[in-house]
Design a protein around this nucleic acid. Structure first.
Lengths: 208, 208
DNA sequence: ATGAAACATGAATCAGTATTCATGTTTGGT
DNA sequence: ACCAAACATGAATACTGATTCATGTTTCAT
């Protein structure tokens, strides 16, 4: 009963290091959290294992009880970000019948998440260089979600006809750009305004 | 006569190392080109000065005759990318009266450029971590261009009324996402199709 | 033609840091 | 209470790679 159930995620390279006790669990979590803060703040290469472990309050060697390499924590952070974002968005769009409204709520939730976790945002971006597979998986999954939503909305007659694939990429690009405005450019435009403007564009376009 | 005219670019930290002879000029160029290839292919931290200089066919020490640090070549590559892209787009949109048509032609030119210079694309992305100022400058300038275009188009009645700022970011986001699809995800969708789909969305939106 | 400035070389320096390991300490099931 | 497995430690290892430098070679203005 309650078998550990292998994760269904793809880039599952190393099936090791699962803590067996509560103490271990806690330590691993502490290291992961510290890694998120340190790598998010200093970037992958400037974040040393020493920084991470001291931030976590453990000795350097302890790191390697739970992670095989520095890259491995990083990849796990990317996966975590993926899970978190999907969960957040899915929560925020629960029960919204109209697809367009759901997309709008999803964008708002995404932007709020990004604003609350700027570190995770940067980590995903850096994944393009540290762990490209994780990066592609992250955005691939994201694009799939958009495409599915768009296809269903199209079938339901809630949006006009158009290539769901390019549309998915375009919408994702808009979300990313607005998120980046918040995190990288520290814009203070309220999220609700961003969402409103963006969705006016997405719904009606810019033709006069 | 013909004074060297200080560059008007912002992040002008080090006014050094201008070659004085034709030989120096050529060597510097060789190093810069090699850096583009090597850093673009291996990423910033895996690209060693040794790799770069051997690719350029010069000794390691020669690098430091023309660049103060590894970061400095990198920053210069980002600036170069900015200049090149702006120039390319500006060329491609010369003489197009209708703003919307101009934007469309600009997107096509951008995508073609990106497809032809995947290395430079990656370098700009990596700038967020290696030289954040250069990154912000790059995308800031880009956004300004879009905003200006949109504002003028709005004034000329060629597009509907709407917040030019968010619109600029959104359009830029679309362009980036499609570019990334080409370079990072190796999509083989023809550029003309991408542009057509994207501009159908941008012009008309997705309302039924 | 010539010498001072430019340019080029590549071996040596120097620092950082990921990873390992031999040695304790703690935990939890019995 | 006991002990094997888990967990924790931090010093030592091992390697990489950016930057410097002392020493040549080439260029070009005079």
């Amino acid at each position: 009963m309650n078998k550990p159930v292998g994760k269904t995620v793809a880039s599952q390279k190393s099936p090791v290091n699962q803590p067996k006790t509560a103490r271990g669990e806690a330590t691993r979590k502490a290291i992961l959290d510290a890694a998120e803060r340190v790598i998010g703040a200093k970037g992958y290469s400037d974040a040393s294992i020493g920084h991470i472990t001291s931030e976590a309050g453990v000795a350097q060697g302890t790191f390697y009880i739970y992670f095989k390499t520095k890259e491995e924590v990083f990849s796990e952070l990317v996966l975590e970000m993926g899970r978190l974002v999907r969960h957040t968005i899915s929560d925020a769009t629960q029960g919204i019948e109209n697809r367009l409204e759901a997309e709008k709520a999803g964008l708002r939730a995404f932007l709020e998440f990004v604003k609350a976790h700027p570190d995770l945002y940067r980590i995903v971006q850096e994944a393009l260089f540290v762990d490209p597979d994780a990066y592609r998986e992250y955005y691939g999954a994201f694009a799939d979600g958009y495409r599915t939503g768009l296809t269903e909305a199209e079938a339901a007659g809630q949006i006009s006809i158009g290539d769901p694939d390019t549309r998915a990429w375009a919408l994702m690009g808009i979300a990313r750009a607005l998120g980046e405005q918040l995190v990288v450019f520290n814009s203070d435009t309220p999220i609700s305004e961003l969402v409103a403007s963006a969705y006016d564009l997405i719904e009606n376009g810019i033709k006069p």
